[in-house]
Simulated scan of single mutants.
Amino acid sequence: MKKFLVGLLTVALAASMLVGCGKKEEKKKADNSLKDVQSKKELILGLDASFPPMGFTDKKQNIVGFDIDLAKEVTKRMGIKLKLQPINWDSKEQELDTGKIDCIWNGLTVSPDRKKVMLCSESYMDNHQVLVVPAKSKIKSLKDVKKQTVGVQKGSTAADAVDSTKELKDADIQLLGDNVQILNDLGNGLDAAVMDEVVAKYYTKKDAGKYKVLEDSVTTEKYVIGFRKDDKALCKEVIKQLKAMAKDGTLKKISTKWFDEDITTIK
């Protein structure tokens, strides 16, 4: 009987120790994401620095763009500095997971796969994947693309869109590093390209007469900001600031600067 009671006490003690360890683990997993950036007084933003007009390197080698202006205003209101960190877009999830960056904010499209590996914020802007061709191209619509060579950015949702678009099933898809490279090759090895509408329209306006954006949309998407899965406090604070900017007209002002109109969707 004594041995039985001792056994029960041993089991109970072990169970209590496990519960205690569990509580310690819970404390370790506390969401300190907002406190961490406030403590270091800096938000490290990961981006593809060749993605105009969202975030790109200008002629003076400064990183500028619509998303950059948004982030600068958000961090200013948070009382912290903004650090811009160019990354390889194809390995953006790893950059986030290893803590090299605090968020991905650069024309990031929400997708089921991305929601599995990162915390996606509320959408702040709509986007479309479109087909871009040289101005003198005979391609007038998606149906005209047969076995032509089509360029898309590796690791982008444009690549996902191409895979699920039946009109492009016979096309020769070329995965390239960034949209600047793709547009440089358009007409010089590439017959067409699939990319974000905001990028396509920026370049057709910038290089008038060189490219044309077809009316067909490959797919419709939404732009979000990507955080680590557990960084809910930081995500909530950033969206809080964006909503305040929408309310006082700052969001509209920044959008008009880059797009000549307010195309933001956050309220």
Rank of each mutant, 00 (worst) to 15 (best):
G7C: 07
L9P: 05
L13S: 13
M17C: 15
L18Y: 14
G20A: 10
G20E: 09
K24C: 05
K27W: 14
K27L: 12
K29C: 05
K29M: 09
D31K: 01
N32C: 00
K35Q: 05
V37S: 11
V37G: 04
K41F: 04
L43P: 06
I44S: 10
L45W: 12
L47A: 05
S50M: 11
M54C: 06
F56P: 05
T57F: 08
K59L: 09
A71M: 11
E73Y: 02
R77W: 07
I80F: 04
K81I: 01
L82T: 03
L84S: 02
P86A: 02
L96W: 06
K100R: 07
K100P: 04
I101N: 03
I104Q: 03
N106M: 14
N106T: 13
G107T: 02
L108P: 02
L108Q: 14
T109G: 07
P112H: 05
K116E: 12
M118K: 04
M118N: 10
E122D: 13
S123C: 12
D126I: 09
N127E: 15
H128K: 05
V132W: 05
K138A: 13
V145Q: 06
K146L: 00
K146S: 11
T149Y: 03
V150P: 07
Q153C: 03
T157W: 04
A158H: 05
A159K: 08
A171L: 01
I173T: 01
I173V: 11
L175E: 09
L175T: 08
L176F: 08
N179I: 15
N179S: 02
V180K: 13
Q181C: 14
Q181V: 15
Q181R: 15
N184Y: 09
L186K: 01
A193Y: 02
E197P: 12
A200D: 02
A200P: 09
A200Q: 05
T204Y: 00
K205I: 13
K206H: 09
Y211D: 02
L214M: 01
S217A: 15
K222M: 14
K229T: 14
K229S: 13
D231I: 13
K232L: 11
A233L: 14
L234K: 10
V238T: 14
K243L: 12
A244N: 12
M245V: 13
K247I: 09
K247L: 07
K252R: 13
I254D: 01
S255E: 00
S255W: 09
F259M: 09
T264M: 12
T265C: 11
I266N: 03
